[in-house]
């Protein structure tokens, strides 16, 4: 039963990622695209955790943590670039 739930969840998160890609392509403005990328990396974290459960290993959690940190920095840097025109003042 758990395996079925796992596969259903993976399908749902993948679908969510596809919807994010739709928003990423469609835009219409730059903030929309950054928001889509932001959601996309959070979905990637979810997928990595699900992969870890499927393979019964905790090895991938480190990379999930790294994606969480790097994704946040990336989002903030891009938003700041849009607002100020430069990342580091």
């Amino acid at each position: 039963m758990m395996l079925t739930a796992l596969y259903i969840t993976i399908a749902m998160v993948t679908l969510a990622a596809l919807l994010n890609v739709y928003r990423l392509i469609k835009g219409p403005d730059a903030p929309d695209r950054i928001l889509a990328l932001d959601t996309l990396y959070i979905n990637a974290i979810a997928l990595i955790i699900l992969l870890g459960i499927t393979l019964k290993t905790r090895m991938y959690l480190e990379s999930a943590l790294l994606i969480a940190v790097m994704g946040f920095v990336g989002t903030v840097a891009m938003a700041k670039y849009l607002k100020r025109g430069s990342v580091i003042e």
């Binding site: 739930a5 993976i10 749902m12 998160v13 679908l15 919807l19 739709y22 928003r23 979810a46």
Partner: peptide, 19 residues
């Protein structure tokens, strides 16, 4: 299983909202 499904549903709803 319940937690997985709840998590999947919320993630999907967030993406639907985004779209």
């Amino acid at each position: 299983s319940a937690m997985l499904i709840i998590g999947g549903v919320f993630t999907l709803i967030g993406a639907i909202g985004l779209a």
